[in-house]
Design a protein around this nucleic acid. Structure first.
Lengths: 254, 254
DNA sequence: GAGTGGTCTAGACCACAGA
DNA sequence: CTGTGGTCTAGACCACTCG
């Protein structure tokens, strides 16, 4: 069953991983220093550094210059898209409901920081919305989502300013059912949503904003909502450390 | 705009990436050898090796011992889940239709290798199906999907043997509409599907089967289909090199 | 066997955190 | 200032491919 006979750094990474999963290095604790691990495993510190890089990429540990590496707490979060598109579920859950409920159920403390402002949308978003990227043509709702002070997701929503200027969508509090319900109230019901998801390395900016290493991949989701005429009402981008999320969708067939 | 001032290997990775994207190193071509690149960039071969590792992780190049590294052809494929759950779309597309149509449209040649046999399901699958993992209790349909001889996906389907023994599901050819339509024909219509998607590093076995590096992450999708009584009729796992796929879902809202 | 990528070491130095 | 992780080098050797 031992396949990793090939290289020391992989073997060491696997052994440390096993120690983390067995609880020998508990969640949130410090690992020994790299030189100490080098003595322990009879290899050079450079090799330990490389082994820890593997674990960093998996989201299992976090490394920072100047302090010892720490084992990451791992809250695996299920994002169930279906819950967001059923009006009943939306209003049952309340405003920021689905996320809060998930995190609380996992025994963590949810928190969401929200900033709303008029802004120039990024080029890709402007193109989808059919507005100018050079002008202040959108309302941006920028959310940073936490679980126990770990950033779990960046979610940036953009809606066209010409449709929603001076509406409740410029408020931080949107009320029950969130943006989808408010748009319906305002006479612009969303009728169709397309979500594209990819896995990729983070941009340097994303890595910094999420507080993760550049080796650690993210799930990137682009959410586009349309009205009955096919006009784009909302574009939301989600950036999530890949190891923190399970993306779930449910379908009824025919 | 230059953020990567910090380390030589990141800078070099970015410069080589730029050369690939500009066409200086065309898709499918060979990169210079690592020692040659080391001379070019005035660094050690070890540093070049590390830079190339970054590009490998992104799926931009492929490295193999003994031969020069090559620039990967990149067919970005959109997998639209919605198309698989509309009977009309299913039958319009034909048996292995959605995938073939996608790849052909991108100018590549699709190919799917299919093996069907009775098998012991993996533990996780057995649990979902409610059958034994120690006995031959399932029909396995193992697919390897290609685009121009590049493996794009491994898709393993399992259905319970007690329901579908000696039916058309034991044939390689399923006919129009695929497994979903055949199950309906056989009196076991699927009514609900749950798909979970995660990004993660491949297992060593997956990396080998896909012909990718272990640094290169995959999208892993677990597809579970239920009948009206809530019994699981099918479990399919998909393993895809992350950089090759865009996962798309569409929803109608209320 | 020659060429290529992959790994490892010993040692050095840098960047950063914290007392 | 000390301890920590991050990077780089020079050189070595290994594993693999191909002629």
């Amino acid at each position: 069953m031992e396949i990793r006979g090939t290289s020391a750094y992989r073997n060491i990474a696997d052994r440390i991983r096993a120690d983390i999963e067995s609880g020998a290095y508990p969640r949130g604790s410090e690992l020994p220093g790299q030189h100490e691990l080098a003595d322990l495993y009879k290899v050079n510190q450079t090799t330990i550094n490389r082994a820890l890089r593997v674990l960093t990429a998996c989201g299992l540990i976090q490394t920072r210059r100047g302090v010892r590496s720490t084992v990451m707490p791992i809250p695996p979060i299920v994002r169930n898209a279906a819950e967001r598109y059923s009006r009943a579920a939306r209003e049952r859950a309340g405003a920021a409901g689905a996320y809060d409920a998930q995190i609380t159920a996992l025994g963590h403390t949810p928190r969401v920081e929200i900033e709303v402002r008029r802004a120039k949308p990024p080029a890709r978003v402007a193109q989808l919305l059919g507005v100018s990227a050079q002008e202040v043509s959108a309302i941006a709702r920028l959310r940073v989502m936490y679980a126990d002070d770990v950033i779990t997701q960046l979610a940036d929503s953009y809606v066209p300013l010409d449709l929603f200027a001076d509406t409740v969508l410029e408020q931080v509090e949107e009320g029950p059912g969130g943006m989808v319900s408010r748009m319906a109230d305002l006479g612009h019901p969303q009728v169709r949503v397309v979500e594209d998801t990819v896995g990729r390395p983070p941009t340097p900016e994303e890595a910094h904003a999420l507080g993760i290493a550049e080796e650690q991949n993210v799930l990137y989701k682009e959410h586009v909502a349309y009205d009955a005429a096919g006009r784009v009402l909302e574009v939301t981008t989600h950036v999530m450390p890949q190891h923190l999320w399970i993306d779930r969708v449910e379908f009824q067939i025919d």
